[in-house]
């Protein structure tokens, strides 16, 4: 939904950061669901690391138990810190889901910030089953858990990770009026997803764009596709 002034509304999974170069970059913040699956994966991976450690250290019966306890301690508190630091903000679970931890200003996460957000995971866990963290993610502007709030970090979708379908071929046609960037975005994404909808649904959606296309139903779908084709830079030969 666009607000009347053409700006995007607040309840949107986007964070804008201004760089020293004076341009705004757009980060797509990650919500509770991908983060849950990332955490679940990391939990499993940690389990296998412990298992591997147990097998490895059982060979050393003097130092073995001590090393295993130190491994548990490191895994419990510093597994995410190590990966966020050395794998550019990504634990294996986050990497699999295409998520990254960044500072609020879009710069890579540093040691103090990573330690803070991960020590405070315990606060997020309370009173049980990560309730505090989940509530915090749901009510804060950039989907921050308590650790993110305190550390000034944010979890985003990696800019590399986005999968896009190509805009289907159609004779390019310039829209009759200049469109704002979010409006252009909406049209291109409509075309990208066209193939995944039943035709009735596509016609229904396209009919909403009647003020722009001057048509409804199939005619509107076709016209929107031509606009999209033009918007991604295709031109009539």
């Amino acid at each position: 939904m666009l607000k009347p002034d053409g700006r995007q509304p607040l309840a949107e999974a986007v964070r804008r950061v201004e760089t020293p170069e004076g341009v705004e970059l757009t980060l797509r913040t990650a919500g509770v669901v991908p983060r849950f699956f990332a955490a679940l994966l990391d939990f499993g991976i940690r389990f296998f690391i412990y298992l591997f450690g147990a097998v490895l250290f059982s060979g050393l019966h003097t130092a073995g138990p001590g090393l295993f306890l130190l491994l548990l301690f490191t895994g419990e508190w510093f597994y995410p810190v190590l990966f966020e630091l050395f794998r550019r903000g990504q634990t294996p679970g986050k990497a699999a889901l295409g998520l990254r931890v960044l500072h609020d200003d879009g710069t890579p996460v540093t040691l103090p910030s990573s330690i803070l957000r991960n020590l405070l995971t315990f606060a997020d866990f309370l009173p049980l089953a990560f309730l505090a963290g989940i509530v915090s993610i749901l009510v804060t502007r950039d989907f921050k858990r308590l650790g993110d709030l305190a550390a000034g970090t944010v979890v985003v979708h990696d800019p590399r990770a986005r999968f896009r379908r190509p805009v289907p071929p159609a004779a390019p046609e310039a829209p009759p009026v200049p469109l704002s960037s979010p409006e252009q975005q909406a049209i291109v994404e409509f075309a990208e997803r066209l193939a995944s909808w039943p035709p009735e649904r596509a016609r229904e959606l396209a009919s909403l764009a009647r003020p722009l296309t001057g048509a409804t139903g199939t005619a509107s779908v076709d016209r929107l596709s031509r606009f999209a084709s033009w918007l991604v830079g295709r031109r009539a030969a």
């Binding site: 760089t19 341009v23 970059l25 757009t26 980060l27 550019r88 960044l102 879009g106 710069t107 890579p108 540093t110 800019p159 590399r160 986005r162 805009v167 200049p178 469109l179 704002s180 960037s181 252009q184 975005q185 291109v188 918007l231 991604v232 830079g233």
Partner: peptide
Amino acid sequence: RRYGPDLEERLNGLALRAHDLLYSR
């Protein structure tokens, strides 16, 4: 100039990654 969302997204991604590299500590 509203050259189009795909180009905007490509440049935004490039700038983000360069920003990331440039300001890493």
